[in-house]
Nucleic acid binder design. Structure first.
Lengths: 213, 213
DNA sequence: CTAGGTTGAGAAGTTTTCTTCACAAAAATA
DNA sequence: TATTTTTGTGAAGAAAACTTCTCAACCTAG
């Protein structure tokens, strides 16, 4: 279930939107201005922000780039009663994913939300589908063994890896370590010991959870 | 944190073991006999069972094979005050992972637990390392796209898959679908529509979580 | 400093994987 | 029923991946 943050200083409109979106099946929370929005985002995983452009304190146009910078995965739909081509273009260039004019119809905002959430899902799938190097790496059994050896026993030096995996031909180990480095799954520290990259750590933990499920 | 179930009708000993294991950092729960143990296992993910062999009602030797059958991933350490070679061999043959004689020292039981849990972790890693077909499947981009298309849009017929992935050459699609079927990631229903196997569903969900983290 | 061990690189040979082609079988439609 | 469309098979060719070999650079120990 997608989590949506409604940011608007008009308390009545805000509550109206929250109620309607909740009825439409979304998990909704609210903030009255930019500062509150950033606070909410800091503690809650938000999928999409409905952001009013005119608010006292930090307004929508000022808040937008800050949210985009700190929470790039969150989709942002800018709402405004005073829309011009210039303000629309400015908002989109600052990172808004959509732009909607008040007063709007309910199904209009719901459709915009659904479209933006769909785009977010698509982007997440694309990112994973594009991890070609990583998938090609994991196709090879020796390389899987190397990753798990390092996960289980910590960083390893070249000949330790070869010995523990019982591979006599060091050049075979060298080839596979090179492939792992080029795929950004392994890196070397000051002593040339091999360790997992953050990405590899994530992947190995995830794959481990398949066996446990 | 490993979850341990202590099964013993001697209430004082049971509480003693629970307390000591909790202090050693384990998450512990208890049962007084075989029936209670099976009930607990039905509602809680247990990593390891400490199972007394002599209990009223369903005793340890009767409970052991039932646990092993229903919860094969759970490690079982059999405890007994009346140990003979025969009883030890019988317990191990029925699936116990270790066998320990009462009265035992605390560090003795903790060491046995640690050893068994380490073996469980090693077995989980081995299972995953051996999923060669699956990993080789995921190395190919077209096959990843097929899996995600079906995850996102539900079961698909042959030409629908080709059309949605914009692949003109149907024999290319056919080849990759065949590889996915042979790796037990895809199966066909009565109308020949392709759907994910339970295993594939698990894997795709897991890989999806990498992008979201 | 020298010799041996460790680590790494590049080329050639071998194996595996993928794509394409020709054809066939099954299902759907007119 | 005949024709068209959909789905599937196997072989050959092409591309990618892996293994082996030779050599080199660097590090360590005596």
């Amino acid at each position: 279930m997608a989590k949506i943050l409604v940011v608007d200083d008009d308390r009545e409109l805000q509550e109206n939107i929250v109620e309607v979106l909740a009825e439409a099946g979304f998990d909704v929370c609210a903030a009255s201005n930019g500062e509150e929005a950033l606070e909410q985002l800091a503690t809650t995983a938000i999928d999409l922000v409905l952001l009013d452009s005119i608010m006292p304190g930090m307004n929508g146009m000022e808040t937008l780039p800050q949210i985009k910078r700190a929470y790039p995965q969150a989709k942002i739909i800018m709402m405004t009663a005073f829309s011009t081509v210039d303000s629309a273009v400015e908002a989109m260039r600052k990172g808004a994913d959509d732009f909607i004019t008040k007063p709007f119809k309910i199904d209009e905002i719901i459709m915009a939300i659904r479209r933006s959430l769909e785009e977010a899902k698509f982007a997440a799938c694309q990112e994973m589908l594009n991890m070609d190097d990583m998938f090609k790496c994991l196709a090879n059994a020796i390389r899987r063994k190397i990753l798990f050896l390092i996960k289980e026993e910590g960083r390893q030096r070249f000949m330790d890896i070869a010995r523990k995996l019982e591979i006599d031909d060091h050049t075979k180990v060298n080839f596979h370590l090179k492939v792992l480095k080029e795929a950004n799954l392994l890196e070397q520290d000051g002593r040339k010991a091999y360790q997992l990259t953050p990405q590899a750590t994530k992947i190995v933990a995830c794959l481990n959870s398949i066996s446990e499920a």
